[in-house]
C-alpha cells in the first residue's frame, strides 16, 4: 500500500510539471494553431535561467520568476523572428515547423556551448533537502511546493483566459483574426502576448522539473516537447483544463509503470496507453475546442 501511495505522490508532482508545460503547448498549438517545435527549448532555457538565478543566490521564488520571464522572452523572440516574419511573407506553416525546429537545435547547441553537456544540479537548499516520512511514504517539501506553484500557475492562466480582456482577445483571435480585428483586438500584440504566456509556462515548468529530478541538461527539452504534444492531444487540442488533466495522467502513468513494470518500459507503457486512448477517442479525452475549430 505504501508503495502505491508513494507512486501517487510522485506521479502527482511529476504530472503537475507536465501540466504546466502542456498548458503553454496548448496555447500555441491548439489556440493559435501554430506549430512551434521550440517549445521544448524554452523549457530547457527556463531550467538554465532558474539554475543561474539560484546560483547567484536569488531565493527560489525569484529564481522561478527569472525562469518564467526568461522563457516568456524566448517565446516572444521566436514569434518576432520566426513566426511573424513567415506570416508576413506568406510562408506555409510547415516552414514555421522547420524554422522552429532549427531554433530548438540552435538553442540546444548554444546551451551546450555555454553550460557544457554535463548534467548540472541546483545548489543545495532546505527546499531540496526537507522531507517527511509518513507511514512509509516519503514526501519532499519540494514536491508540495511544486504542486502548489503549478496550481497557482494554472489558476492564473485560467483567470487570464476567462476574465481578462487579454484572455477574451486570445480567444477571439483563435476563432477568427478578422473578427478580432473588427472588434478592436490588436491581433499582432495578442499573438505576442500568447507567446509570452506559453514561453513563460514552458520556462517555469523547466525550472520545476529541473528541481524535481535535480537535473538540468541541454537535452531535457526534446523529450519534453514530445510529452507536451502527447498531453495536449490527449486532453483535446486547445483545451486548457484538458491539458492539465492530461499532464497529471501522463505523470501518474509514467511513475506507476516504472514502479510496477520496469523503468525501461516507462515510455512504451505511457505512450502505449495514450495510443490506446486515442484509438478509442480520437478527439482526445476532453475535446470541445476541436469541433469549434473545424
Amino acid at each position: 500500500m505504501s508503495v502505491f501511495l508513494q507512486q501517487v505522490v510522485n506521479g502527482i508532482s511529476l504530472g503537475s510539471t507536465y501540466a504546466v508545460f502542456a498548458m503553454g503547448c496548448t496555447l500555441i498549438f491548439g489556440v493559435l494553431n501554430i506549430v512551434n517545435m521550440a517549445q521544448g527549448a524554452f523549457f530547457m532555457g527556463g531550467a538554465y535561467f532558474g539554475l543561474e538565478a539560484a546560483r547567484l543566490g536569488l531565493p527560489a521564488p525569484l529564481a522561478l520568476l527569472v525562469a518564467l520571464v526568461g522563457g516568456g522572452v524566448l517565446g516572444v523572440l521566436a514569434e518576432l523572428v520566426i513566426f511573424r516574419t513567415l506570416r508576413v511573407r506568406g510562408g506555409h506553416r510547415w516552414m514555421g515547423l522547420v524554422a522552429s525546429l532549427a531554433l530548438a537545435r540552435m538553442m540546444v547547441g548554444i546551451a551546450q556551448e555555454i553550460f557544457g553537456t554535463q548534467v548540472q544540479r541546483y545548489p543545495a537548499s532546505t527546499l531540496l533537502d526537507t522531507a517527511w516520512d509518513i507511514d512509509g511514504v516519503r514526501i519532499q517539501l519540494l514536491q508540495i511546493v511544486i504542486l502548489v506553484v503549478s496550481i497557482v500557475l494554472m489558476a492564473l492562466l485560467a483567470l487570464t483566459l476567462q476574465r481578462s480582456s487579454t484572455g477574451r482577445a486570445i480567444r477571439t483571435v483563435a476563432y477568427s483574426e478578422d473578427v478580432a480585428r473588427i472588434v478592436g483586438v490588436p491581433v499582432g500584440r495578442t499573438i505576442l502576448t500568447t507567446f509570452f504566456l506559453a514561453g513563460g509556462l514552458a520556462g517555469a515548468a523547466g525550472m520545476l522539473l529541473g528541481n524535481l529530478f535535480n537535473v538540468v541538461s541541454p537535452f531535457m527539452g526534446e523529450q519534453m516537447l514530445v510529452k507536451g504534444l502527447t498531453v495536449i492531444i490527449l486532453g483535446g487540442l486547445g483545451n486548457v483544463p484538458g491539458a492539465v488533466a492530461g499532464g497529471f495522467l501522463l505523470g501518474l502513468v509514467e511513475v506507476f509503470s516504472v514502479a510496477y513494470v520496469s523503468s525501461s518500459f516507462r515510455d512504451a507503457i505511457g505512450f502505449g496507453l495514450i495510443f490506446l486512448i486515442l484509438l478509442v477517442k480520437p478527439t482526445g479525452l476532453f475535446s470541445r475546442f476541436e469541433e469549434r475549430r473545424a
Binding site: T160, S164, S165, T166, R168, A169, T172, V183, G184, V185, T193
Partner: peptide, 9 residues
C-alpha cells in the same frame, strides 16, 4: 465590448 474594456493583464 472589447475596445471599451480597459482591463488588461
Amino acid at each position: 465590448t472589447h475596445r471599451s474594456h480597459r482591463k488588461g493583464l
